[in-house]
Each structure stands twice: as structure tokens, then as C-alpha cells.
Amino acid sequence: MTPLMFKTTVAAAALALAAAAPSQAQTADSAGIVRKMHQAFFYQGESFRARVKMTLTSASGSERLRELTMLRINTPASGGQRYFMYFHAPGDVRRMAFLIYKYPAREDDRWLFIPALSLVQRIAAKDSQSSFVGSDFTYEDVSGRDVEADAHRLLREEDLGGKPCYVIESVPKGAASYQRKVSWIDKAVFLPLKEEYYDVQGQLFKEFAAEEIKEIDGVPTAVKRAMKSIKTGHKTVVEFSDVKYRLGLKPEEFSERALRNPPGSWIR
């Protein structure tokens, strides 16, 4: 038996088993939907670049801004991704650059370049649920959470803003910042339109919304997204502009050179 035939047989057997056990089938389906959502939201188009504007608004209404350029490339061989972020504003982070190597089943490698000291610093990446640059988004919200880290269940199917959606509940298998997450995933494009995060007391504490979706280079893209912390009233709105997919980059270009001396075409 060739390896391919073996795989096919196993897959067929798994499908047969799944069909025999409806509750399991539903679980498998929901993980499949979440996997598709991941593909549509975090992995589209081999590589990607966008100018990102983050507006952080506190409960009292005071605003802070973060402006950065984000590049991403998928590394299909390892199933991982590489991210490069270059900060334009505010002043204290200007010219700082951030490099992340993401792997499917182990901790990220993360490096930060501090221009005033000309220092490339490796940073501890254990806590993927830390806030990303002081916003309501966590690192995980920006680059995706391992699909296998949660148990997924299809709750129902319903329309949200006129769009048919799958409503999926995800419960972390290990420790996480939330106890339960409910996602509304667009059936047509598989982007998450809304996510609700519940804490140990079962209370809603964080809410995500894809506020504007545009098709760019043939890829449906959430160009405006918001995360609101219900308890503190703090809110972050992220707007993407100059979005481009399939840039013809190489994974090797996501390197120390890019941190210290990013190519002009990357960061304009």
C-alpha cells in the first residue's frame, strides 16, 4: 500500500466513523468550519501587506493611535507563518520593528528591533494572550489561535446583518483568557463577523466585530475590525489600507536584515 492510498483509506474510515456517530460528526464539522475560517482570516493569499491604523479609545473617550505596516508570509512546508511589523507612530515606537515566526505546535519566535539602541532583542513569547501594543486585541487575535487548542461545537445557523452564518462555540482545552467563545462565521466567505468572549462567571467581557469587508485582489478581507472590552469600556478599531496580496516575497526576507534595515518597498 502506498502512503497516499493508506492516507485515503484512513480518511475514508474516519469519515465512515464520523457518519456513524452524529455528535462527533458535528464536532468534526465545527472544527472544519473554524479551520476554514482560519484560512480565510489569517492565511489568505500566500503573502500579504497592509498599512494598519489602530485607534484605541478609553471609556472616557480619550484616543490613542498606532500606525504600522504589517507583512505576512505563509511557510507551507512547516504550516507556519512569518509576520513583520514596522511602526510609523506614535513617536516612542517610530521605526521599531517586530518579527514573529509562528509555528503550528510550538511557541513563536519573536524579535523586536529598538532603533534608538540599534538593538535586536528576542522576547519571551509564552503569553500569546498579552495585549498587542496596548490594544484590546491579543497577539492571538492578530495572528490566530491554534484551532486544536479549543473544542468547537456548532450551536446553530442564523443570519447576522442579513448574512447566513454558522454560530460556533469554542471552549479552550487548556488555560486561556476566556472560558468560552461564540463566533458568527459567514457561510459564504468564512470570515468571522462577530465573536463574543465569556469569562469564568459566564459573563460577556470582550466583543469582536468585522465592521467592513471588502474584496481585494479577489480575497474577501475584513478591512475594518473592532474589539471592545465590555467591562472597561475600552475599544480598539483597526483599519487596513493599501492592502495587497501575493507580493512575491520569500520567507528568508523576514529576517534580522528586515528588522534593522527594512526595504523601502515594504514599509512605505
Binding site: 522576547i123 509564552k126 503569553d127 494572550q129 495585549s131 483568557s177
Partner: peptide, 8 residues
């Protein structure tokens, strides 16, 4: 050795 035992 550096690590982040809790958020932030």
C-alpha cells in the same frame, strides 16, 4: 533566562 509568567 527571561519569561512572561502572566499577562504584561
Amino acid at each position: 533566562y527571561q519569561r512572561s509568567p502572566w499577562t504584561d
